[in-house]
Design a protein around this nucleic acid. Structure first.
Lengths: 350, 350
DNA sequence: ATGCGTTGCGCAAATGTTTGCCCATTCGGC
DNA sequence: GCCGAATGGGCAAACATTTGCGCAACGCAT
């Protein structure tokens, strides 16, 4: 009777380090060290093992690595609301850079709404090496879980009080630049569309803008809450447009582009000419701000640099858990477009 | 000399199944079976172990589970371009539902651009249980990797030729509904803003629309390529607006909302009144289409249901690898708004 | 020839969970 | 009082990798 047996060397199971070690005639530990380029391995052996790995289509097994090393190569990320293009851009930039650095993203949560505890558990279950938060307030549950397990946390576009580093745009300076632009453009009746949420970003932009105005002997004639949404900005715009011409501002600063879009659209529907009757400025510099229909003056956040620095902070803290929290703020770039009146000569030279 | 020793029962290391087993006086295997609710375990023991797990803050170790069971609880996802809100909505809905089902998302790639092989490796390295693709053409590298390793693949909003199931909206019917609406609205000079990419979605919408027109004895007077982007739609809109009034269409169907927005904005900048001079319709039903500034007639894709069915297909194939590929198409919902002329009475009754 | 440092590699433990198989006890039916 | 089945749980292997330690061999200087 003929018994069919599989040649174990031709097994269709995926190649492991043990497979390679047998094939190369060395110990598994040698293969491990050879593949990761460290340890004292002769050049020939290293080359031989590398060749073998390619031939046999070896792929490291992330879970096994996680088990024995304690590092998963995973970073957890929590993204912002779907309707704000800034967070979409941020997410995409993050995907790119995380992958470029040889890590992977475990998507924990996205959008508004509370992060449930079962979602937070993912951080522990998958041994996430680090965590990137944008937008949401850092929930205390997550913060304590991360702190208790030595998982470094970096926030992007917001600073938190506890257990986390942060990378932001320099919101105060950016907002002051907008204020300067408006004031030098001759505007005196200025409305501010802000947000009442307690986010550091909103507060800084509000304060930076208001402070510049005060130093110029001015103050916002109107402060509206746009709730950080398009709809909020739209409502604010409707409110402003409905004011009698004498009491109407001649410039509006919305502290985020998404609200500025709402303001612009409300003005347009109300028949207000943005170029002529009214200046509008935003903050974030999302790609949509450059569309001809908006042509919005704004401060562009340096997204690639911000994500890069955030990952730098994260990786440094993965290697050295004792590093203290650090906050980095990067200067944004003022982009002057048609939504603010033509720039006086003395400013375009700067 | 006093030697400080840690009480091993008070160890600050995280609780494992072994910790629990010692505490409960049973074998680790019993704990494992008790916690997952299967196996023959007495009710008291199950309760006791459950209580203990809560007390000690036990969290399962995903990597260990992956190692021994071969299942990771991870699904890989590849998202679409950042500038199209449809894909952002899709991503967010997917995050919600995946988490609700007790799984996690490994973000493989997002946006346009090719998926490099090192990115595809994540599928193997992390033992992804299944894969969800949207937008991108399924790269053959990924397809073969998934096929070779028995990783089921489901595409959303696109069907692929090989190795994958799919969930889509019924693009042909939806487009025919748009066509019907336009024709019944009295439009005869109709332009189609389509996309020349070979995506099944684009082809179906194009074909469904054109076929209906043909059956009505009509044909699109103009076919433009909008490249599935806002900018492409905008350019198409400019082109149309620039036509002499006699040769200009009186209705435009853009096969995705993002292009329709471009068309609308181009018209607006050109001074064309959408209500009066021109009807415009889109497809996708992204939230932005309901904004007053656009007020766009469109076909809403049933996103929650689509994601739900996609995950159903995926999970079924995780359990039974022999299931054959399956394509599900769900009916969209026609949303009639102001961008098309007021509906005749006989249609509003339907 | 001795001592010492370095190079190159092997040994084996450890990581936490799952799962097939086995064993003891109990129970019900006859 | 016996048999078969059901119940409750234990044993141990297996999963793939990392890493501290050990050890032999070799080179080089004394």
């Amino acid at each position: 009777m003929l018994i069919l047996m599989r040649d174990p060397t031709l097994s269709n199971r995926r190649a492991t380090i043990v497979t390679l070690s047998r094939e190369a005639g060395v110990a598994p530990s040698t293969v491990s060290r050879a593949l990761k380029g460290e340890g004292r391995i002769s050049a020939e052996m290293r080359a031989k093992i590398g060749r073998l790995a390619k031939e046999l289509g070896y792929t490291p097994h992330a879970s096994a690595r996680t088990m024995s090393s304690g590092r998963s190569g995973l970073i957890g990320i929590v993204g912002g609301p779907a309707d704000n293009p800034f967070y979409t851009e941020l997410l995409h930039e993050t995907v790119r850079q995380v992958v470029d650095r040889g890590m992977r993203m475990l998507m924990i949560h996205a959008g508004t709404g509370p992060i449930e505890s079962r979602t937070a558990d993912a951080l522990l279950q998958y041994q996430v090496d680090g965590c990137l938060f944008s937008s949401v307030e850092l929930p205390s549950k997550i913060a304590s879980v991360c702190a208790a397990n030595g998982v470094p946390v970096v926030m992007v576009n917001r600073v938190a009080r506890l257990h986390s580093s942060a990378v932001t745009c320099d919101n105060a300076i950016g907002s002051a630049q907008i204020a300067e632009l408006l004031v030098r453009g001759g505007h005196r009746q200025i409305a501010l569309v802000r947000t009442s949420s307690s986010s550091s970003t909103g507060i800084e932009r509000d304060a930076g803008f208001t402070r510049y105005l005060e130093q110029a002997g001015l103050r916002p004639m109107l402060r509206l809450d746009g709730h950080s949404t398009y709809e909020g900005g739209f409502a604010a715009g409707q409110h402003i447009a409905a004011l009698p011409a004498g009491k109407r501002p001649d410039a509006v600063y919305a502290i985020s582009d998404i609200m500025a879009f709402g303001v612009l659209d409300a003005f347009r529907l109300a028949g207000l000419q943005v170029h002529a009757d009214m200046a509008v400025a935003g903050f974030d510099g999302v790609p949509q701000s450059g569309r001809p229909i908006h042509d919005l003056t704004t401060v562009e956040q340096p997204l690639p640099a911000m994500v890069g620095r955030a990952l730098d902070l994260l990786q440094a803290r993965m290697l050295d858990k004792t590093l203290t929290d650090e906050t980095v703020s990067l200067r944004g770039r003022l982009i002057i477009r048609g939504s603010t009146r033509p720039v006086p000569d003395y400013m375009s030279e700067v």
